[in-house]
Amino acid sequence: MTGQSSYVLTSMDRIMNWARANSLWPLAFGTSCCAIEMMMSSMASRHDLSRFGAEVVRPTPRQADLLILAGTIVKRMAKPLRVLYEQMPEPRYVIATGACTISGGPFTYNSYTTVRGADEIIPVDVFVPGCPPRPEALIYGIMTLQKMIKTGEAYGQPYQRRRPITAALPPGMTQAQLQKEIAEFLEAHATIDVDKAAHNNRWEKERY
């Protein structure tokens, strides 16, 4: 009986992670230039983020589970940002877009207010480099986060600091290649085979 229940639980974990990954609700949080590209990718019709289930942009953190940090964070914004993050329900994920949120970017030197790296304030899952990152790059970052969530890596563990992953578009990648990859990703990850997923689970194999 115990074996049965653990079998169900791990499958549930899989299904939950799959559901979470495919219904990310971002918070409309933009401080500067990257916010425009975020709007271009999330809501505008060309780069439709709803293909990834992540288009329901919420204005309040209490309904959101993905915080896309778009733009420079300065000292004065650090406190409100922390409050926003704390208000989001678990599990919550953070994508930091743009050079400013990664390292301070163009405002690293000789600036008395810019926070050099948003991960000094809140834990970040995925960094998306660019100044500002193209919508394709942001979509690539969201795809990376989805893969992380599905493998259980980004599962929100309270008080546990993870190292952020940098999701840069591979150099020399053309738009056609990227579109092909996105199409393959959508095809492969839009459905889940529960039995297969459960049997492929490493933890299960070790047990039996």
Partner: peptide
């Protein structure tokens, strides 16, 4: 206006010193 009310010093003065600021 831009800085917090408890900010110390006036940053655009030439002799402003801030341990937070990185020199290029």
């Amino acid at each position: 206006l831009f800085l917090e009310d408890d900010w110390v010093g006036f940053p655009l003065r030439k002799d402003y010193k801030d341990y937070f600021m990185l020199e290029m």
